Simulated scan of single mutants.
Amino acid sequence: MSEFPDSASSPPSTVPVPPKRGTALRHRLAELRGPVPAKAMDARSLAALAVNPGCGRRALLDGAGVDKGAVAERLGAPAVSGQSQFAIVRGHAFEARVKRDGGAELLRLAHERLDPSAPAPGPDTARMPPLSAAGGQEARVARTALALREAAAAPGVWTLLDHPMLSLDVAGTPAFLEPDAVVVHPDGRWSVVEIKSFPMIDGSAEPAKVGAAARQAAVYVLALERVAARLDPAPEVDHRALLVCPKDFSNLPAAAPVDLRKQLSVTRRQLARLTRVEEIAAVLPEGATFDAEQSPGSLGAAVEAVPAAYAPECLSACELAFHCRARAREQGAVTAIGRSVRGELGGLTTVDAVLAAAAGQAGDPADPTVAALRRAAALRDEALGAVPGPARGSVLC
């Protein structure tokens, strides 16, 4: 007797079949988003996840494709962000200069800064295959994968892909990514190139801007690793990116390798966390959505139901930063001062708790944090006590 029932003679089963996890997740995220299309994530928004990986609010809203800018506008705390038109035009002009003549200068910089032991690129050992923009994003992703496969099968040649299209799965939805360039080395290795318009002075650039570029490049590397994994043998994807910027205050290009291992680790963890957003969504009241068309009160209640982890760094990376900062200040949270301060204060999470511990009104004296606060308060009182009355008042103002 067969262990499988005969579907022709058996009555249909009345036991409901649970939906696959991916389908259930997408359905839940659509419910949270409301009757609006999902906002597609790009490399910049994915990179911003690494700025504050502990924020459940950002993870949930980004995973659901919610337009955080519209939500912030509805809550009365619109974001002030974005590049100036002048900076965008200047960036496009610099990128065009770097890539002219078939990318000869860009390949020279890649050889010099990433792979000096390889043969130098020349007319017979370098190529820049055209990548058509026709056919939509999926078609561009397929053409990029084909170009990378062909480059991997042509050892000894430098290949430069100008604005390839990659994809990365984010909470069950593909995010389409467009790096400035990808270089395929003569040994088959793949490297991401980031071209920025901020200057590199005496061989170094502003750390905050380099960090932002590194987080963005790490997203591209993760997407490239997905493409490489489908090839046999899988090409190596360099954990370094080539950062190209104007040299000093000129329009000449300068380049430096940027190690992405830290950014790759953080971004991998955050993307994995986005696949578990249903756990974060479980704290929401029934029927709550992030539809920006609902009343500010209902929208605010839904947003506040999801725990946030505000830090000053959010101001440059998240559209909801001003709203979250206002709430953190209302609650007296020490995170509004900065992550480093929050880390030093241990279990003291509010300014009131810190002041009470410093004044000896609360806290365990054996706690090193409390002892340090009381010592600091005593030193402050001692220093201010040596100042004459009027001067002391001015210090406290």
Score class of each variant (00 low, 15 high):
393 G>M: 15
297 G>M: 06
95 E>S: 14
322 F>Y: 09
253 P>Y: 10
239 H>T: 15
367 D>L: 05
149 R>S: 14
358 A>T: 13
320 L>F: 03
42 D>E: 07
67 D>S: 13
308 A>M: 05
234 A>Y: 13
358 A>P: 00
235 P>C: 04
228 A>F: 05
292 A>R: 04
121 P>H: 11
102 G>C: 07
282 A>S: 14
28 R>V: 02
319 E>W: 01
372 A>P: 00
66 V>H: 00
135 G>C: 07
374 R>T: 12
233 P>N: 09
231 L>D: 03
396 L>A: 12
262 K>M: 12
309 A>F: 09
317 A>W: 02
138 E>P: 03
367 D>M: 05
311 A>Q: 09
193 V>A: 05
116 P>F: 05
307 P>N: 06
269 R>G: 15
374 R>H: 09
188 G>R: 01
216 Q>W: 09
287 G>E: 09
385 G>T: 14
21 R>P: 12
330 E>M: 07
109 L>Q: 07
231 L>P: 02
110 A>R: 02
276 R>N: 13
2 S>E: 12
309 A>R: 10
302 A>N: 02
39 K>T: 04
254 A>S: 11
44 R>H: 12
271 L>D: 03
225 E>N: 07
338 G>P: 07
176 F>N: 03
247 K>N: 12
233 P>E: 08
342 R>S: 14
371 A>P: 00
9 S>A: 07
215 R>E: 08
30 A>G: 03
351 V>L: 14
289 T>E: 07
132 S>M: 10
174 P>D: 06
113 R>P: 00
63 G>A: 06
131 L>I: 06
146 L>G: 10
159 T>G: 01
75 L>H: 10
29 L>I: 00
188 G>V: 02
97 R>H: 15
228 A>T: 08
65 G>Y: 01
211 G>T: 15
54 G>L: 08
49 L>P: 00
129 P>M: 10
382 E>C: 09
242 L>M: 06
224 L>G: 02
352 D>Q: 14
86 F>C: 15
191 S>E: 03
393 G>P: 05
168 L>W: 06
141 V>R: 15
324 C>W: 05
314 C>R: 04
250 S>E: 08
246 P>E: 05
170 V>N: 00
286 E>R: 14
197 S>T: 12
255 A>W: 04
171 A>N: 01
136 G>W: 00
150 E>I: 09
51 V>H: 01
63 G>K: 00
344 E>A: 14
60 L>V: 04
384 L>A: 10
47 A>V: 05
279 E>F: 06
313 E>N: 06
96 A>K: 15
198 F>D: 05
254 A>E: 08
373 L>D: 02
362 A>Q: 14
70 A>R: 13
11 P>E: 11
244 V>P: 01
290 F>V: 02
392 R>E: 13
268 R>A: 12
231 L>N: 04
149 R>M: 11
278 E>A: 10
204 S>M: 12
186 P>Q: 07
316 S>G: 12
151 A>C: 13
16 P>D: 11
233 P>L: 08
